[in-house]
Design a protein around this nucleic acid. Sequence first.
DNA 1: GATTATACTTACCTATAAGTAAGCAAAGGT
DNA 2: ACCTTTGCTTACTTATAGGTAAGTATAATC
Lengths: 192, 192
Amino acid sequence: MGRISDTREQIMDRAAQLLMSRGFNGFSYRDISSHLGVKNAAIHYHFPAKTDLALALVDEYRRILRKGTSEFMAYGGSALEQLEGFFIFTTKQCHVGRCICPFGAFSVDYNELPDDLRDATQSFMEESIKWLTRVMEVGRTEGEFSFTGDPRVKAVTVLAALQGARQMARIHGIELLNDVVAQVRQDLGLAT
Amino acid sequence: MGRISDTREQIMDRAAQLLMSRGFNGFSYRDISSHLGVKNAAIHYHFPAKTDLALALVDEYRRILRKGTSEFMAYGGSALEQLEGFFIFTTKQCHVGRCICPFGAFSVDYNELPDDLRDATQSFMEESIKWLTRVMEVGRTEGEFSFTGDPRVKAVTVLAALQGARQMARIHGIELLNDVVAQVRQDLGLAT
DNA sequence: GATTATACTTACCTATAAGTAAGCAAAGGT
DNA sequence: ACCTTTGCTTACTTATAGGTAAGTATAATC
């Protein structure tokens, strides 16, 4: 028994891995418990239903996003830095865990998801879009990027390309993601 | 009992719907059989294992792809026409069934898929990439599109953006896909 | 007209899923 | 010293999954 309870954290860590490698319906409590050496019911103690676990994960994702973007959102700053940070985060995560984007994981099962989880996923996504929209806006205004059209639509397109690329990378090899990132940069007028 | 056996076709139709709306692990034989008003074992008669069903679906996708692209691949032609056809196909499919791309459906569960199904998915994807690469090549040469970098990488990026957009559209509304298509066109120098 | 293949159904099996209820050991507060 | 909360385990339930074996009605073949 840990000091406070690091079991809860370990559950979430493992669940995050599994979610991004198999999708929400692709893993079970058993996959978590057997890995941690605890019983199934221990997971249910911390997260009574699978939905609760998923909600906790979405919350954590949102916390991570906010940590990396709150200063930029509040005061502005280098859009290029934010974007490159995002690329690095994405590719690193993908290389380490061969995992897909959380949005991708949820979106496949989205039609069968309970309402609260759908809402949480949707608002997390809206938050991500808002952040990248601001990055696009600021970046174009400051002359760091060049693109035509609505910044929000461009932001959504970039997110979509990365989400798709992470998935395609599993089928076709990890370098596919690097290629897509390179192309997205090029499409924003950035040097290779 | 149908003339020859349209049950098999109906199974595949329904399975295709389900695959694209829930992912490979998101539907069961029961979902198909109950919809068709037959028993579970009837599906097993036509497709002993779920893998067999999935393989048949991939084969069908490949057939559809070839039907729409073989002439272009053989003789060249209007790249713009091919691309617009692809956009229309994608958006229509998405609007009608609120469904994701087959690649997306398989890629989420990819790590747990049997080898033969992985191979089939991979080679179908390679075929799709090859086709769109040629579209990009011809389109740029003929001056229909403008983009920088490797045609294959550009093709992969476009596919990734559409795959990602179809998934994000489920969470955030169907107009997201239209936006992404518009942005992709714009990024290729096409008029809105 | 007997045989065989087709296209199923009925009935079953085994594994696994999510989830619950009750019990228990240890730590913390009073 | 006693009670309560925390953090689990044991033992169970119900539902569903993929899959199989054996039987049956119809249609085609010889």
